[in-house]
Design a protein around this nucleic acid. Sequence first.
RNA 1: GGUUCCUUGGCCAAGUGGUAAGGCAUCAGACUGCAACUCUGUGAUCGCCAGUUCAAAUCUGGCAGGAACCUCCA
Length: 443
Amino acid sequence: MIRLYNSRTLKIEDFKSIKPGEVNMYVCGPTVYNHAHIGNARPIIVFDTLRRVFEAEGYKVKFVSNYTDVDDKIIKKALEENVSEKDITSRYIKAYEKVREDLNTIKLDAAPKVTETMDQIIEFIDILVKNKNAYEIDGDVYFRVKSIDNYGQISNQNLDELQAGARIEENDKKESPFDFALWKKTADGIKWDSPWGKGRPGWHTECVVMIEDNFHGMIDIHGGGVDLKFPHHENEVAQNMAVHHNHIANYWIHNAMLNLNGGKMSKSLGNISWAQDVIDKLGSSLVRWFMLSVHYRKELNFSDEAIETAKKELDKVLMTLKNAMIKLQLNDYSGDDFDEESYRSFLDQMDDDLNTPNAYTVIYDTIKKLNASLRNKEINFKEVGKYTNSVDKMLKVLGIKYEKVKLNQDDKDLFKSWNDAKGIKDFEKADLFRQKLIERGLL
RNA sequence: GGUUCCUUGGCCAAGUGGUAAGGCAUCAGACUGCAACUCUGUGAUCGCCAGUUCAAAUCUGGCAGGAACCUCCA
């Protein structure tokens, strides 16, 4: 049984899919006006891992995540560079796709774009206007929050308590300060024709429409960063309630933010770390191992020290696997059965609201047993093989990729020569062979 | 002001009613031709105060400190 913390109910709940054996999930994607920073990598990794857990438990998963390719920031950037919006968005979508790929994520089943969903978005807004859930003023269209009676159900916000204009200047054209834009009349940049004149859609409608488009009804899981909970997800639900009379998804999953050296990453502080740079420097496996070393609902601090520790941990795991695989190959053992007990308890931890820190302890535990097994004078290769394959399967669920040693005849001869030299206590010769093995990365 | 959440050994981090997992680091051993790897052992009463309970890190209240969100930042 998979259990997940549902941020709509604020409780850990038993997961029950709408269709038996199938999971439909949607995660809000990025606005593509710039490269992905390391914080953006967290939801990518978390939800990819969640997908892998479902698949490991036998579910068929459909995972959709969008690209917001219409936005003020994109228009601004296009004007600055004197190129088209499309030039900007295709550049960053491409970069984003590379980050996803380099992070060893399973390919999305669909990655819809706003520009390619425009007809449906306009149609959807039109329905809201006709149903009096939205109203037009001077070419802008706003959602009438008071037209539905349970606004705030996702974020537990109460309209009376919300502080209007806490961060943004109030717009006195709107009926209520909490009404949000569905369509904006625009002077600059790319625009589309609509029943309300030329303009572009607001941000909150696209996800609702894309979910409808891709899944044709309620989905199991809707994910994203906690920063999207309010107002974005709240507004998605509001629109969906108005048209489809349901709250879109049964389970709302939000990952916590990532901090850089204890503080927030921001352009004004000039401390942005780009995801691609980090991946290029550390490798995808270390990035994933680090990101999953802390529970996804807890803030995670990205620092040199934390990376250093994560690297030691991962190296230890991979080193042990390497040693085991070499031992197995030197003895021509190639069984593919795995230790079911350890793999099961690993999955149990993953099933428990993606408790990756506890899942890691299962890995450490299995690695310890594997090492102990390798230390025996008389090695039980079947046992070594089982533990090795079990850990290998665990790492697959985490999306950790690593190179598996494959010994050729020369390598095997080298090991034999080394051992023979040691056998006759010719340590000078032995050290020579050892040096060669080290150079080949086999020790 | 509102909402949600966090505070566990030097660092990281699980546990959320029955008397503190794990990792990194430290120190001490073992193994080894030497080294690396590996193995064993090594420390906390859980921000503070009060309450509920046979029993609390875990529930309730208060206090202190911190975080995110409150109209487009994952």
